[in-house]
Nucleic acid binder design. Structure first.
Lengths: 148, 148
DNA sequence: CTTTTTAGTTAAGCGGGCTTAACTTTATGC
DNA sequence: GCATAAAGTTAAGCCCGCTTAACTAAAAAG
């Protein structure tokens, strides 16, 4: 039983990840953004505003690199870079509505595939899948918050 | 109901994709391979041997670019480049055992997190998740083969 | 059998990401 | 207050991926 769930998770992740990674990199390319720039944008969309150092830490690059990438995103108006009112050395990076729209367009595009899949499921199957994914997502969120 | 499954799919994707993409790019970096090189390796591992043109088509780059990337992977012994016996203009790219080992190490690392999640599930939850993911995977595979 | 098309390679050159190093500005520790 | 540490920025230089263009070699078309 334990073996079975491992097996099914692995297979699903395999299929899903290949599809997903390819889709995202194609989408990133179509926007004209490089992958590093795009990843930062995703990060800001996903986790909300943060400072420059969090970016460099998260992506394991130097402060200088983060600063340069952020600069380009500011230039193209996908993010905003403001002074942190509580510490005037620090900056607060935040996605703009233009940036948000871009990422959400990507998400929507990625979802089209999932929607197609769901369409072919029976009502009963839909219910099962929905319940299972909710369980997984909840568990994952708990785990993420527990690891710091 | 249809709304509910869309919602749970979206949330699931949000959490799992971020985690997974981050993990892969960290892993790729740790191997010293660039993302383009790593992606080609993944592709060869996932879909088996193919020619140079399929690579350039798949990743939407020029033949020249594909050739140069492949050359580097050959140099580092992650792939083999042989002459296609049925068409002496063409080449057959194939992952080596060294390459396979590398990718599989990455997969294993990615799975560690999934295993942690599964551990915290009850027996009943495991059964539900397992069943649902099997449904999804089967559906996805059918869909993939139907789209060409 | 010649012409054209197809598969791949090679080289030059551009642009991007990244690092190190030097610097500015602001906060912290004593 | 003064020294030290921390957050970002800027510039120089390297490596890498990518494109275009020129080329080789083999298959297909006529």
């Amino acid at each position: 039983m334990s073996k079975q769930i491992n097996q099914s998770l692995r297979e699903w992740m395999d299929v899903f990840m290949h599809r997903s990674m390819r889709g995202w990199s194609q989408f990133a390319k179509s926007t004209g953004l490089s992958m590093p720039q795009f990843s930062i944008l995703m990060q800001l969309h996903h986790k909300g505003p943060c400072g420059m150092s969090q970016i460099s830490e998260r992506f394991d690059i130097s402060n200088a690199a983060a600063s340069q990438l952020a600069e380009k995103l500011v230039q193209s108006e996908y993010i905003e870079r403001a002074e942190d009112p509580t510490d005037r050395r620090a900056k607060v990076l935040q996605i703009t509505s233009k940036g948000k729209a871009l990422i959400e367009a990507g998400v929507t595009e990625r979802h089209r595939w999932l929607d197609e899949l769901v369409k072919t499921l029976s009502t009963e199957e839909k219910a099962k899948v929905s319940e299972a994914l909710t369980i997984l997502t909840q568990t994952a969120k708990k785990y993420e918050s527990s690891e710091e």
